[in-house]
């Protein structure tokens, strides 16, 4: 995990290095908003990994978080479905709303939140169980189905949507860990969509894959946009440019700039963004 890098980057001297005039408080999306965050800070113990980030995520779009390693983009992503809760020393302040509801409200059941905001991780992490069981697990624990037929149905559609069905339909009972890396990642995507989330968070989903598998996943992300809101953290600017409609650029825990992917890549407002895009640092 890259958590340690986040914390390292949050040294104090970094602040005066480049304090960008963030769009704090102002909406970054015009139109409907799925997830809205305002003045979000994330701390690891004493160290601050995310500083006053406010951004909006539009529904049925792919939003990409880019930035140099350790800039806090993964940390922020994990704040969106409260995956940071599992790290004891991690503290989140500020306001994150999903469809207008504060997800850090005390009354929010984190389990239900994660069912609405699913996640795909950097390294494919199928359960050491059969392909079928991997996908069926979510619907089972959330009680989404009453009959075996419905479950079969969900497993098949999910695998189909993840573009994996044709490759595995004859061997649903074989272990998910036996698949290739790209297939494993698509299995993880199928597992995430099996609980019908509204938002899917993807934390560098292709970083462990070869180019061909990457291309397949990117294609899949583009298709999934129809039904889901997708947030993807990526290292690769080309990938961000290829799959996303909107891009947010993070640097040292700050949100430097956010806008249409095209604008960000062709005509960034901030010189830091420009420098990163043109490869002067990163």
């Amino acid at each position: 995990m890259s958590d340690e890098q986040h914390t390292e980057s949050a040294h104090d001297h970094a602040q005066d290095h480049a304090r960008p005039d963030t769009t704090a408080g102002k909406p970054t999306v015009d139109g409907p908003v799925k997830v809205a965050s305002r003045h979000v800070d994330v701390f690891y113990g004493e160290k601050q990994a995310i500083k006053d980030v406010s951004l909006d995520i539009a529904p049925n779009e792919v939003t990409a978080f880019i930035g140099p390693s350790g800039c806090g983009k993964s940390t922020f992503l994990r704040a969106l479905n409260r995956m940071n809760d599992i790290i004891d020393i991690c503290r989140v302040t500020g306001d994150i709303r999903l469809d207008g509801d504060d997800i850090y409200d005390r009354r929010v059941d984190v389990v239900q939140l994660r069912a609405r905001v699913g996640m795909v991780f950097q390294k494919p992490n199928p359960f050491p169980k059969s392909i079928y069981e991997n996908v069926a697990y979510g619907p089972r624990i959330h009680g989404l189905v009453a009959h075996k037929d419905e479950l079969d149905e969900i497993v098949h559609t999910s695998l189909d949507r993840a573009g994996l069905l044709n490759e595995v339909k004859d061997r649903l009972e074989t272990p998910g860990t036996g698949l290739s890396g790209g297939q494993q990642q698509r299995l993880c995507i199928a597992r995430a969509i099996a609980v019908s989330p509204e938002v899917i968070l993807m934390d560098e989903p292709c970083s462990a894959l070869d180019p061909i598998a990457t291309a397949k996943i990117e294609e899949l992300i583009d298709e999934l946009r129809e039904n889901y809101t997708i947030v993807i953290v990526t290292h690769s600017m080309q990938q961000a440019a290829r799959v996303s409609q909107r891009t947010a650029f993070f640097h040292l825990g700050h949100l430097v700039e956010m806008g249409d992917t095209e604008t960000i890549f062709t005509n960034p407002e901030h010189r830091l963004t420009q420098g990163y895009i043109t490869g002067r640092f990163g």
Partner: peptide, 11 residues
């Protein structure tokens, strides 16, 4: 009432 998802928790 036959819609398991209506429950917060599994039966």
């Amino acid at each position: 009432a036959g819609v398991p998802a209506r429950l917060h928790s599994l039966p």
